[in-house]
């Protein structure tokens, strides 16, 4: 038996909205410690990694490890049927070929349940090494979304240059060039609005804006986003999922041919 109840059901809605355009299908691995997901987009340029701890749920039970193959646009459609304030419970039996979703209104006057077919998926699992990154930037997620959107007007790629003074995003194309420079915040009164750069070594990397714009769909999940970078390795774009865990996107860099 698997059952996970989340009073803040809107987190599920936001999470699905964050990944459904990037991934068509994925396996939700459920165990006694929580729910994880790892999947690459169809062109294998990016990887999504989700971890939700059992402790973060209001009720959590998983008697036997369960891998649920899910068609994400379908799950997203069902999640849209939940109200923003609804409590969401996900349930499945051990040998299930379906997953049940129960949406309860806060006042308990409306309860909806949906059942969705699971799909057979055979996906490879990648080992993500523990890495010490050269630069880690924390910034408001809305600012990151804005920068990715704005620079997409100029070109397909963004060059992210990080030094101890701050971080610079640049794009160029037929119409010209654009640079957006963010300096490290002088005071950190409002933690959510701060830009914090933690640098061991300056880096300058090139990434496809198309993917960063997909990642930025996770903006409603968290006020801050964390970018981790080292020379010639995938960029990590991390959004915290409240007390539950995290949503991480890995993006392979563009490399000099």
């Amino acid at each position: 038996m698997f059952e996970a109840r989340l009073v803040q059901g809107s987190l599920w809605k936001k999470l699905l909205e964050s990944i459904k355009d990037l991934l068509n299908e994925a396996i939700f691995d459920c165990s006694s410690t929580g729910i994880t997901l790892q999947a690459m987009d169809s062109s294998h340029v990016s990887l999504v990694s989700i971890s939700m701890n059992s402790d973060g749920f209001d009720t959590y039970r998983c008697d036997r490890n369960l891998s649920m193959g899910i068609h994400l646009p379908s799950l997203s459609k069902i999640m849209k049927c939940a109200g923003n304030d609804d409590i969401i419970t996900m349930k499945a039996t051990d040998d299930a070929d379906t997953v049940s979703l129960v949406f309860e209104s806060q006042n308990n006057e409306k309860v909806s349940d949906y059942e969705m077919k699971l799909i057979d998926l055979d996906t490879e699992h990648l080992g993500i090494p523990e890495t010490e990154y050269s630069c880690v930037v924390k910034m408001p997620s809305s600012e990151f979304q804005r920068i990715c959107r704005d620079l997409s007007q100029l070109g397909d790629s963004v060059v992210i240059a990080c030094t101890k003074e701050g971080v610079k995003f640049s794009a160029s194309g037929e119409l010209g060039t654009g640079n957006i420079k963010l300096c490290q915040s002088a005071s950190t009164d409002k933690e959510e609005e701060a830009v914090v750069v933690d640098m061991n070594e300056a880096v300058c990397l090139t990434f496809a804006l198309r993917y960063l714009n997909f990642f930025a769909k996770a903006t409603p999940l968290s006020a801050q986003v964390q970018l981790s970078m080292s020379k010639d390795v995938p960029l990590v774009v991390e959004y915290k999922i409240s007390e539950l865990g995290f949503l991480r996107f890995y993006l392979a860099p563009k490399i000099e041919d």
Partner: peptide, 14 residues
Amino acid sequence: SVKQGTISQFFATT
């Protein structure tokens, strides 16, 4: 010119 890398270039299958 720059070429788009893939994730499997960096992370091995477990």
